[in-house]
Amino acid sequence: MTAYKAYDAVRRIAVLGCGTIGASWAAYFLARGYDVAAWDPAEGWKQRLQAFVDNAMPQLQAVGTATGAPGRLEMLDTPEAAVTGADFVQENATERAPIKIELYRRIDAALAPDAILATSTSGLILSELVEGIASAPRFVVGHPFNPPHLIPLVEVVSSKVTDAAAAEWAYGFYAHVGKHPIVVKKEVKGHLANRLQAALWREAFNAVVDDLASVEDINAAIAQGPGLRYALMGPHMIFNLTGGKGGIRAALEQFGPPMASWWETMQRTPAFDDELKSRLIAGIEAEMGDRTIEDLENERDTRLVLLLRMLKETEGER
């Protein structure tokens, strides 16, 4: 059985793939004081990564993630060089199975014998990616939510060949560095949180197809309503409060039957046809107005920082 490093002994983290997710991970690990060895195959990635890190650091300081001096960022030309000597690897290659499989084959022999690799895949099945990979027992899913440097959640999923101790180590390491890991007990497409999101998007898209409301009002139906509650407690706990003093038992008794009748009308999957796409695009463009994607990202992250600070400040009130 492989003996994995103590969390305090981890010093160097490799980040493979430095697009939106990978750059965010790199900023987070740097802010926590780890040295980061980064690699990406795209042109101009080094400049983009540095710009992202520079922009993210003040946010990480504002939410209290940054602890002491930041780690050292090293940008390398091959994935083999990046993982050499790394204690932990966060892989964020493009969400396509052939690309990830090729990357795993390239780095297989270069990984340290006690290094664990976590893939940020948002929905691929890890067991289908690691066939023939000698280090596969040390691979797990470590799926974050965008942007990873601010959103605490990380989903930990094992493949059919993952060493149970490696999965346990990954879970503990994410907690050690300040994340909120959860264990997804089975491999399913989309893991858990994305499946919950997909269920909501299905009904949101159907609301567009059925002309139930404008795209802007559909967004407001979540952002100005249940979305505010979900930032504080999950759906089951919110449902518990729906029952008032009677809690979950009263809620199930009172609201279970009518909700079941709603579910009967929610079995349709919308078609991604040109009409739906056009209506979604037009609705979003109208709501965006003159704002750019960069403006929206800044708006999102500014509000996330404020929300995370509030949540951290009130943790002791439970």
Rank of each mutant, 00 (worst) to 15 (best):
C18V: 10
P137K: 02
A136D: 08
E216C: 00
E80C: 01
K5G: 04
I238Q: 15
M259A: 12
T292G: 08
E299I: 00
E317T: 03
A66F: 04
L311Q: 13
G68F: 05
D210T: 04
Q47W: 01
E294Q: 05
V184M: 04
H236L: 15
L192W: 03
E294N: 00
I238L: 14
N298K: 12
I238Y: 08
N219D: 15
W25G: 05
A223Y: 01
M266Q: 14
L153N: 01
L280R: 00
R318T: 10
Q50S: 14
I151T: 13
W39L: 02
W262T: 10
Y230C: 01
A213G: 11
K185R: 15
L126I: 11
L76P: 04
L200M: 15
I284P: 09
W201E: 15
I133L: 11
A3T: 15
L280K: 01
A38Y: 08
P137D: 14
M266S: 12
V130D: 06
K277I: 14
V156F: 01
A220P: 06
L73Q: 08
G227T: 05
A271K: 03
V53A: 06
P226A: 03
F88N: 10
E294L: 00
R195I: 14
E297C: 03
S120D: 10
D87E: 10
A282L: 07
P235T: 06
I133P: 11
P70H: 00
A134R: 12
L73V: 06
A51R: 08
L196V: 12
